[in-house]
Computed example of a mutant assay.
Amino acid sequence: MKPKYSEAFIGQARVKLLSRGERTIQSVAQELNVNYYTAKNWLKPSVTAKVVGSVAKEKRPQDWSAKEQLIALYKTYGMSGESLNAWCRENGLFAHHLTSWEGAFCTQSQSPSQTVELRAFKDEIAQLKRDLSRKEKALSEAAALLILQKKFRALWEDEAK
Rank of each mutant, 00 (worst) to 15 (best):
M1A: 13
M1P: 08
M1T: 10
M1G: 14
K4Q: 08
Y5G: 00
Y5V: 00
S6K: 03
E7N: 07
F9E: 01
I10H: 02
Q12C: 06
A13T: 04
L17M: 06
L18R: 10
L18P: 01
L18K: 08
S19N: 10
R20P: 01
R20T: 00
G21F: 05
R23E: 05
T24L: 07
T24R: 03
I25L: 11
S27R: 11
A29Y: 02
Q30E: 12
E31R: 09
L32T: 02
L32P: 03
N35W: 04
Y36M: 00
A39M: 09
N41E: 07
W42H: 03
W42M: 01
S46Y: 13
T48F: 12
A49G: 02
A49Q: 10
K50I: 11
V51C: 05
K57C: 06
K59V: 14
K59S: 15
P61M: 08
Q62G: 03
Q62S: 10
D63G: 00
W64H: 14
S65H: 04
K67I: 10
Q69D: 07
I71A: 06
A72K: 03
L73I: 03
Y74W: 09
K75S: 08
T76H: 08
T76S: 15
T76M: 05
E82I: 06
S83Q: 14
S83D: 14
L84W: 00
N85A: 07
F94S: 04
A95V: 15
H97V: 03
T99G: 02
S100M: 07
W101L: 06
G103H: 13
F105N: 04
Q108K: 12
S109N: 13
Q110W: 11
P112Q: 09
Q114V: 04
T115H: 07
T115F: 06
V116A: 09
L118N: 10
F121W: 06
E124M: 09
L128F: 01
K129F: 08
K129P: 01
K129V: 09
R130F: 06
L132I: 07
L132H: 10
R134E: 08
R134T: 09
E136M: 12
K137G: 13
L139N: 05
L139M: 11
A142K: 15
A142Y: 13
A143N: 11
A144L: 13
L145D: 12
K150S: 02
A154Q: 14
L155F: 14
L155S: 15
E157F: 14
E157Q: 11
D158R: 13
E159R: 12
